[in-house]
């Protein structure tokens, strides 16, 4: 094992982390501001990917496809909020779980009805494809590097938005005290729609970015949804900073675990069973990480009281 391989794997972990951050940011905002558990967040990720694939197939432009994914997911999110979600803010978490589970069924099968049962095609544009040479002689796919940069840019943008803008102040105030902010004359229902659409757009962007190097298919959102929940719980619910830290931690753990655990096991086992046993433990690793963090810090890394 060379140090180049280790560095490359760290970059891979970083890239997975950035992708998870895009998913988790919206989820944690919506939870922090509105107190809503949204299982259908993964459906917005899927909507983004399908919108991008459709527009890319139609126009051939990747930039237009990304724009379409933002727009489509934001629109789907706003619609979801206006029709269903706003009736759920005052309900308990259980009603929210059931309602958003129903939304998953509707979105998944609705997408299958519109686009068919087969995966869609979405590819990396030629100007982003292929590897680049990084200092130290690492060959790294340009597209993955781009995802890391987009993730960093979105993170920076979100911090600015929340720290510096009027809407950010309202968001922070909403997290701290919901009655207070209404009393201050903020149109709270509009704020909620905007925050929800913003989170949806980020999920849609993640779906489109990832769709180009993965498979655009029905049900693609669910595994990511679970990971995103793990991320925001590790980071502390409602905290953007926590979502970033959690995403990086989960990305690194998952990537490095799946690489190094089998090699560790190979020290004292034959290769085939080490590969299998190591992979088994690696697939459990992030859940073990999450349980361990919650045992030490019951409200996550940056969480206040739950």
């Amino acid at each position: 094992m060379t140090y180049i391989l280790v560095l490359e794997q760290i970059l891979n972990g970083l890239q997975l982390g950035m992708m998870l951050f895009l998913m988790a940011a919206g989820l944690t905002l919506v939870f922090g501001v509105m107190g809503l558990i949204n299982l259908a967040h993964g459906s917005l990720y899927m909507v983004g990917a399908f919108a991008a694939a459709a527009v890319a197939g139609w126009t051939g432009s990747f930039l237009l496809a990304l724009t379409a994914s933002l727009a489509a997911a934001a629109a789907a999110g706003a619609l979801m909020e206006l029709v269903v979600i706003r009736r759920l803010y005052r309900r308990d978490h259980l009603d929210q779980v059931l309602a958003t589970f129903a939304l998953i069924l509707i979105f998944s099968e609705g997408t299958r009805w519109l686009f068919g049962s087969f995966p869609l095609f979405l590819d990396v544009p030629s100007y982003l494809s292929g590897p680049v040479s990084l200092p130290g002689g690492i060959q790294y796919p340009l597209y993955r590097l781009t995802i890391i940069l987009i993730g960093l840019a979105v993170a920076a943008g979100l911090f600015l938005l929340i720290a510096r803008t009027r809407i950010g102040i309202q968001i922070r105030a909403g997290e701290a005290d919901r009655e207070m902010i209404a009393a201050l004359g903020v149109d709270i229902s509009k704020l909620y729609t905007v925050v929800f659409a913003l989170g949806a757009a980020l999920a849609g962007l993640a779906g489109a970015l990832v769709g180009a190097i993965q498979s655009v298919q029905v049900g693609m959102g669910e595994p990511v949804l679970i990971l995103a929940f793990v991320v925001i719980v590790i980071g502390g619910i409602g905290s953007i900073k926590g979502a970033l830290a959690g995403a990086l931690l989960v990305g690194m753990t998952d990537t490095l675990g799946s690489v190094f655990l089998p090699q560790l096991f190979a020290v004292f086992m034959d290769p085939a069973s080490a590969a299998s046993a190591g992979a088994s433990l690696a697939s459990m690793l992030i859940y073990i990480l999450m349980a361990a963090i919650l045992l030490v810090r019951p409200s996550g890394l940056y969480g206040g009281s739950a």
Partner: peptide
């Protein structure tokens, strides 16, 4: 000969780590 033998997670969608191992 076998240069490597890897079991991935069922349902895994990102293979960056595996591809890096293949390269090396």
């Amino acid at each position: 000969e076998l240069a490597g033998e890897i079991y991935t997670k069922l349902g895994q969608t990102d293979y960056a780590a595996e591809i890096a191992q293949i390269r090396a």
